[in-house]
Design a protein around this nucleic acid. Structure first.
Lengths: 155, 155
DNA sequence: TGCAAAATCACCCGAAAGTATGACCGCTGA
DNA sequence: TCAGCGGTCATACTTTCGGGTGATTTTGCA
């Protein structure tokens, strides 16, 4: 960008000033301003050039943008806190007991151990696992655990 | 905020205008300006008020606040990149085949399915799992998978 | 209050998983 | 060269898992 282009505003301003002075002189000669109207005359000039100044300022310092950068932290995988995916639980229609069984299953417990932990019989645990597998559409406990983790049913 | 406070700039501007006019009149009386110096006089006024205009514009114009929300994603456990915990593999003295079996085990495959996938017999897979369980000091495949995940042996 | 869902338990049976043991082969490092 | 290890496979056996079916009790909700 050349000097002319870069300072176009200022050059225009200077030209405007010259034109205004010329006009004023011309008006002065034409109508022979009365002494009393000098302050009105000054006022008009002042207003005019104030407007010019404002225009200049706005034009010249164009991008007065205060950019406020707000960093929004998005945690993709919570570190310790595990949040149960309620939607999946509802979608699969899993009962509380079934989810509990799945949890201990994922921890590596056998059906008998889960039965002992939940104070129920082995048969009951078997019923729960069977229902769980049917609802999750899997065949084995390892598949259930794998899918359960992927769906956010277990940590 | 009251009217006065809100329009302080404009009121100041008005006052400045009045002061300038008063000064000019005073100077006029004092020194009796020559007709010839009228354009210089106008020039000075113009410059003064242009400056005032610029100052006004700068002061008045609120810096346009542009709020840019930068979403900063914080990955705690990278979902795609899995790095095998070599140290644990060495510590437990796990062979390549055993690790491979563990991997498919975690995916929910049965021993027969793993055998088919690795093009070996079911008995071979059983041998590998047995060795794996002994080295990992676990009793069941679900335990092996759980521990494997915790030790970073599998994704 | 009454009903559907959940939870509980039982029995049978076959499939899968896990245990124990032994054997063979190929590679590698002392 | 040969002992050791990893990988392979096999047989035999026990345990656990999972499917199928049926039944009773408890509970949450309309």
């Amino acid at each position: 960008m050349g000097f002319l282009a870069r300072h176009r505003q200022i050059i225009l301003y200077g030209l405007a000033l010259a034109v205004i002075i010329f006009l004023v002189r011309w008006l002065e000669i034409r109508y022979i301003l009365a002494d009393d109207s000098v302050d009105i005359y000054i006022g008009v000039i002042a207003l005019l050039f104030t407007g010019l100044g404002v225009w200049l300022a706005i034009k010249l310092r164009k991008p007065k943008v205060e950019t406020v950068i707000v960093e929004k932290e998005i945690l993709l995988t919570p570190p310790v806190v595990f949040v149960l995916n309620e939607n999946e639980v509802k979608r699969l229609n899993l009962s509380r007991r079934e989810l509990e069984v799945l949890h201990w299953m994922a921890a590596g417990l056998s059906n008998q151990e889960i039965a002992d932990k939940l104070f129920v019989s082995l048969n009951t645990v078997k019923t729960h696992t069977a229902q769980l597998f049917e609802k999750m559409e899997v065949k084995r406990r390892t598949q259930a655990v794998d899918l359960g983790k992927k769906l956010g049913l277990i940590p």
